[in-house]
């Protein structure tokens, strides 16, 4: 498409928007409402996901080693653990290190009076690639139980809960975005259909004069894209400007929440911004394309 032709189509699209300003405004508001819900929900999901990631990061498996296992046995056990699939990192904790960790945790050295570092068991802290492989790694560890493992400490219930909630949130957010996009397309289709119907005579005249389908279609498609993009820009701006304030209000109003880290705004909007602009444009193009199709058969 040449520059001159693009300029013509763009001009026609803007003229169409202005001429049918009431319907255009209604369409923009409709798209904006749907995209606003999508944006708010996305910000929420991004934070829940962020929280779950932090939680996942904190969940590791600890293998306690029998006191009578010699140094070679410990090294051998460590090597065996490293060969287990989905294990991303294995960290050895000596008697001394375990003692220091306990000292740090309690802050009051008095309560450790008379307790020697040797009283704290040696262990391996195991990080796994993804929380979903938690049970697989546990099963593999059970096969190494005769290599000096006293017991395996883990938080299987927490892991299961985190995985379930995480999957649920992702599934709900996906479905919600899908449903809202569908609703927007239906509404925008009907809105543009009214506009197109009102311009049926105009379309017929264009066809009689020899206009191609695309010559007629382009201004309507651009009109739809403009409605979609303007309708998606508004909620992004609203969510963008409100996000930091909402976090501040939540943290001030609920002191316990202070310990929870929120996902930084730029991390959310670097994904949300192009996504909703694309979604808005897609909604607009599908909506206008669908509504003009049957009016072109003249």
């Amino acid at each position: 498409m040449s520059f001159r032709r693009s300029r013509y189509f763009l001009g026609e699209a803007f003229r169409g928007l202005i001429r049918n300003r009431l319907m255009s405004f209604a369409s923009v508001l409709t798209v904006a409402s749907c995209i606003l819900i999508v944006s708010v929900f996305y910000a929420l999901v991004a934070n829940i996901d962020f929280f779950l990631q932090q939680l996942e990061g904190g969940i590791s498996i600890t293998v306690i080693i029998y006191n009578d296992v010699d140094a070679a046995g410990v090294i051998n056990l460590g090597e065996q653990i490293r060969t287990i699939e989905y294990v991303s990192d294995v960290h050895y904790v000596s008697h001394q290190q375990a003692f220091e960790i306990a000292m740090e945790a309690f802050e009051d050295p008095e309560i450790f009076y008379g307790i020697l570092p040797e009283n704290f068991p040696r262990s391996f802290n195991i990080e796994i690639v993804d929380i979903q492989y938690h049970d697989t790694v546990l099963a593999a560890l059970s096969s190494l139980s005769n290599m000096g493992i006293e017991r395996v400490m883990h938080a299987q219930n927490v892991v299961r809960m985190v995985t379930t909630v995480s999957n649920m949130v992702r599934w709900i957010s996906g479905s919600l975005i899908f449903v809202l996009a569908g609703v927007s397309i239906i509404i925008i289709t009907n809105t543009i259909r009214i506009t197109v119907s009102a311009r049926q005579v105009e379309i017929n005249i264009m066809k009689y004069v020899g206009a191609t389908d695309w010559f007629i279609r382009w201004p309507f498609l651009i009109e739809g894209i403009l409605i979609g993009v303007i309708g998606s820009l508004l909620p992004v701006i609203i969510v963008w400007s409100g996000y930091a304030q909402v976090i501040r209000i939540v943290q001030e109003g609920m002191p316990l929440v202070e310990f929870i880290e929120f996902r930084p705004g730029h991390e959310i909007f670097i994904i949300l911004f192009p996504f909703v602009i694309f979604l808005g444009a897609l909604i607009g193009i599908i909506g206008s394309g669908a509504s003009i199709r049957r009016h072109l058969h003249v």
């Binding site: 001429r19 105009e202 017929n204 005249i205 264009m206 004069v209 389908d213 010559f215």
Partner: peptide
Amino acid sequence: TRKQMPDYRRKMGVVFQDFKLLRN
């Protein structure tokens, strides 16, 4: 064909009783 229609119509001028002008 449907694709050839615009070309066909461009080779003829048409005048209607109700003028069929673009009002805008």
